[in-house]
């Protein structure tokens, strides 16, 4: 059972991918949802300031942070990656559970959004970058994908982040998350 943080953003897209993989999931919208049994959590794309603010306002911040720190398998895409990063350039970190440094809107505004195909764990997959952030430093963890030398996917123990949106085009990264982190 995977919990999908559903405070704001493209969370339903993750549910569709999991549905197709016959993996059960539920939406996390409030504190009581965090008490449900889950084997992993997905932090979706959206606006990181919005999601971060709602985590605080709905008293979900500390409980979620504790779960991730205690080893809950966690997968963040785009805004989700910003939420997990310990260091945010020109900004305040949110959950700060992962030893990476990240830069918001690193490719500029919407005109800088782009689509490409590149290698993730030895497989060429489609990658949509929407006002994407950039991982500027990996203090600890493994780089899983780069695009033109830009770091776009990192795994550190129980945590996986991508700066692109695999949920829009492919189930490959979800399968990777389920196989290598959730069912480890």
């Amino acid at each position: 059972m995977i919990g999908i943080l559903a405070l704001q953003g493209a969370f339903i897209e993750h549910k569709y991918i999991l549905d197709n993989l016959s993996v059960e999931s539920f939406e996390i919208r409030k504190l009581s949802d965090l008490n449900k049994k889950m084997s992993g959590v997905i932090l979706p794309g959206g606006e990181s300031t919005t999601i971060g603010k709602l985590l605080l306002d709905l008293n979900m911040f500390i409980p979620l942070q504790d779960k991730i720190k205690n080893g809950l398998p966690s997968f963040g895409t785009c805004a989700g990656a910003i939420l997990l990063a310990k260091y945010v350039e020109d900004g305040t970190p949110s959950l700060a559970t992962m030893d990476i440094k990240i830069k918001r809107n690193a490719y500029g505004r919407q005109l800088g959004s782009f689509f490409t195909k590149d290698k993730f764990d030895d497989e060429i997959i489609p990658m949509s970058f929407i006002r994407a952030p950039l991982i500027t430093e990996v203090v600890a963890g493994n780089i899983l994908a780069t695009v033109n030398d830009d770091i776009v996917a990192v795994k550190q123990n129980n945590q996986l982040v991508t700066t692109f949106h695999p949920e829009l085009k492919t189930d490959f990264v979800h399968k990777y998350f389920l196989n290598t982190i959730v069912q480890r």
Partner: peptide, 18 residues
């Protein structure tokens, strides 16, 4: 073709928001 999709995608990221 990519642009059309990327532009629709940005709206997807705004969902559930104000």
């Amino acid at each position: 073709e990519d642009r059309v999709e990327l532009n629709r995608n940005l709206a997807q990221m705004l969902k559930g928001g104000v």
